[in-house]
Measured scan of single mutants.
Amino acid sequence: DRIFMTRTEALEFLLKAHQTAVDKIGHPSHKQTPADHAAIEALDRLLLDVRARRVDQFQINASAAQIIVTD
C-alpha cells in the first residue's frame, strides 16, 4: 500500500509516531530495551531527513504502508 502526503503531513505523522514511541518507553509498566531507543533514534533521523528534503518516501516498519511525500 502507498499513502501520498504533503511534506507537512508527513512531518506531523512522524512527530506523532515519535511521541508514541517516547510515551511507550516512558510508561512505568514497559521495560526499556535497546531496540526501543534505536527506534526513536531512527525516527529522529527520518524526521530530519524528511524536513531537509533528503527523503521523499519512507516506511516506518515492514508491515506499514509506504509513505510518499509530495510537494
Score class of each variant (00 low, 15 high):
residue 34 P to F: 08
residue 59 Q to H: 07
residue 36 D to N: 06
residue 15 L to Q: 12
residue 59 Q to W: 12
residue 42 A to P: 01
residue 43 L to D: 00
residue 16 K to C: 06
residue 28 P to M: 08
residue 67 I to V: 10
residue 6 T to G: 04
residue 43 L to M: 05
residue 21 A to Y: 13
residue 20 T to M: 15
residue 8 T to A: 14
residue 5 M to F: 03
residue 41 E to Y: 05
residue 15 L to V: 10
residue 56 D to Q: 12
residue 46 L to G: 00
residue 47 L to C: 04
residue 7 R to K: 03
residue 65 A to P: 14
residue 14 L to Y: 00
residue 38 A to H: 07
residue 20 T to G: 08
residue 30 H to Q: 06
residue 34 P to N: 08
residue 35 A to W: 08
residue 48 L to G: 11
residue 27 H to E: 12
residue 63 S to I: 12
residue 47 L to K: 02
residue 39 A to G: 06
residue 52 A to H: 14
residue 65 A to C: 07
residue 23 D to E: 14
residue 31 K to M: 13
residue 70 T to D: 11
residue 2 R to Q: 11
residue 52 A to R: 09
residue 58 F to R: 00
residue 66 Q to N: 07
residue 1 D to L: 01
residue 66 Q to I: 15
residue 65 A to L: 12
residue 67 I to N: 01
residue 1 D to Y: 03
residue 68 I to G: 01
residue 14 L to I: 10
residue 18 H to N: 02
residue 8 T to P: 09
residue 71 D to M: 05
residue 71 D to W: 03
residue 66 Q to K: 11
residue 46 L to S: 00
residue 8 T to E: 12
residue 67 I to T: 01
residue 20 T to D: 14
residue 23 D to T: 09
residue 71 D to E: 09
residue 30 H to F: 08
residue 60 I to R: 01
residue 69 V to I: 15
residue 57 Q to F: 12
residue 28 P to A: 11
residue 15 L to P: 00
residue 50 V to W: 01
residue 37 H to Y: 14
residue 65 A to F: 11
residue 32 Q to D: 13
residue 15 L to W: 14
residue 38 A to P: 03
residue 41 E to S: 10
residue 26 G to M: 15
residue 23 D to R: 12
residue 18 H to R: 15
residue 58 F to N: 00
residue 22 V to A: 07
residue 39 A to N: 10
residue 34 P to I: 08
residue 57 Q to N: 10
residue 58 F to K: 00
residue 39 A to R: 09
residue 38 A to V: 10
residue 26 G to R: 15
residue 30 H to L: 06
residue 61 N to E: 12
residue 43 L to T: 01
residue 17 A to V: 11
residue 53 R to W: 05
residue 22 V to M: 14
residue 30 H to P: 05
residue 2 R to V: 15
residue 3 I to C: 05
residue 54 R to N: 06
residue 3 I to W: 09
residue 30 H to N: 09
residue 26 G to Q: 15
residue 19 Q to N: 07
residue 15 L to E: 09
residue 53 R to N: 12
residue 58 F to L: 02
